[in-house]
Design a protein around this nucleic acid. Structure first.
Lengths: 192, 192, 192, 192
DNA sequence: AATGAATGAGCTTTCATTCAT
DNA sequence: TATGAATGAAAGCTCATTCAT
């Protein structure tokens, strides 16, 4: 088993899925981009679906773990939230294809992805939710906003802006600036 | 031209695209749901893509127009923003299939949708952007947030929360409550 | 639904399965031989397997029914047995492709065929077994041969000879002569 | 050349071909069952077809030779025929996989098998045919049955019954009993 | 305008065979 | 010799689109 080939296939799949979407992307082209024969794909992945699932499991999980670790280092709820936003934007900036894929395909209501959303993705969102709830408990944040609203509000905002940045050709917006503005608005918005 | 059949096909397409996604949805099933023969679809629409485009053009445009009219009635920028959020949520609540379709497929980076995003959708977002810029000009809002960031932040937040509401089986969250909380946070967040 | 097309597909499948065997036969070639497009095959049959099953169900069953009716007309067990042998040979002579297919593929241990053997084919064999058992009861036949041995002995003999005739290019053997000789041997062989 | 590996591959192929049929059987699984790597198969056999041909040539030939030798020991035509039947059943009983393979695949009208049937298999059948012709010449058997009919009749009967025995799960029939009944019927059937 | 049977290009997946190690 | 990862041709099946009726 060639770990490199598997890795190359995953990277190629990320690129093609991001560019064409899961359904339009062709296994043959993914293989070609990875520099292997079509059939080789099936030595490393059960089928096309498995390729997508593996991307989620193997590429997204580490990012979540890394985010979790980073947030754990932050002491205040405010810092956790700001760190989440900033870091998410950095990750998008460094992995635009993966980001696009997650952003686009995560919306697809396919069974396996829906199940996936229910576990790993929820965990990711809860990093925000927990930080906010913690801040509420500490009397730092306004009580009238529910943590599950807050976490989705922030994620939705960050996701929208970073997706748009990824798709934009010009990239005349600095994503780090956007992150700061988002942070400002949402923290100011819930400040007591 | 039988307006009824065309309309029925559009409604059926919205339902099927929302349920299965654009690629998995079958023209034959859309036709069956609309109560017409498969071939009839092609009397009213050039092809499957055209069906999707038409949904955007014909279903979304009225919503945008209506939103535009509604916002024109509002005097203050704050009211415009709150109205946008509230009304968007109401529309989602009343047209869950259409909402889901827009939310999901809007993310697909297909050519035709991308082009579409550049026009009608941009117009929709600009309703938010303009209201905010107006408020900034009037000295009501914080200057450190760029209108194009603000509009995407708000839209992303509302979209995320309403999509999630549409997909959730339980619907134990009242979307109107969510709208109020979002409004609170974003207005508070940019208040001078 | 075009009954003719379905029929043409069945006939074409019989020919191709007989010539190439089930696995080597290509759906595309069957369709071409039937004068339809590949996809048309799937309007009339669920899949390639269904094509084979349908041949069995729709082509073999009538033959069995007809044999059953013919044997019912015969009064003595001997006549029934002779009629079975003669008639089987006549059917093979008139439907060489179907015969070859049944003979060859019936041996394949595929699940669906095995199940099929357990029902329709057993019924066919039992026509012989019952005639023989009847003759034994009437004291016409030797008791030392079990009906289930007899029926398989006769069927095996007839099947082997008729298959061989079908495969032989020269056909210098008259199958009706063979039928007579088989009849002579097996009846003489169990005469009391 | 490693005789053991070659032999193990042949045995494994017999098992897999018998279980799954020639086309469904996978080279990789045959190799695995033989305890060698996939590629090793191609060191000992030209291709998958060659594996099947070799089984016929190398497994069947000894059986034919042994049968030939056995029959040579028998003095009367009747004994030769009875010995053939009995011995064939014994071989089937001892080599069910090989038997099944021969029985099933011999029917396939593939080129190589057809050619094969014309040589080795014909030789096997002729053991029966010659014994019968000899008996006819000696005035022991009825003249109205042609040797080539007789040999196929007997082989077909034995083959059908032994195949059925091999496939049956219960095996509540003793194959040696069947052999005796077949012998009785066919000898009685041609007795002068 | 309406039908729905027919089309056939295009896709995923399999697997006999090869070949670098 | 032996390996088993890699190959890529080949095949079954789907479904958007067409077209005779």
């Amino acid at each position: 088993m060639d770990a490199t080939k598997r890795e190359r296939l995953l990277k190629a799949a990320i690129k093609m899925f991001a560019r064409d979407g899961f359904f339009k992307a062709k296994v043959e082209e993914i293989a070609k981009l990875a520099g292997v024969a079509t059939g080789t794909t099936y030595l490393y992945f059960k089928n096309k679906d498995d390729l997508l699932i593996s991307i989620f499991e193997e590429e997204m999980t580490p990012l979540i773990e890394s985010m979790k670790a980073e947030l754990a280092k932050q002491t205040s709820p405010q810092e956790k939230i700001v760190t989440f936003i900033k870091r998410h934007c950095q990750v998008v900036e460094k992995n635009p294809d993966l980001a696009l894929l997650l952003e686009v395909e995560l919306r697809q209501s396919n069974k396996f992805l829906h199940e996936y959303q229910g576990t790993t993705f929820k965990e990711y969102l809860d990093l925000l939710g927990n930080a906010f709830a913690e801040g509420q408990k500490a009397g730092l944040f306004y009580q009238g906003v529910h943590p599950s609203i807050f976490k989705q509000l922030v994620f939705g905002a960050v996701d929208q802006i970073s997706t748009n940045w990824t798709l934009s050709k010009t990239k005349n917006l600095k994503l780090s600036d956007a992150a700061e503005q988002i942070s400002y608005v949402v923290l100011q918005g819930v400040k007591k």
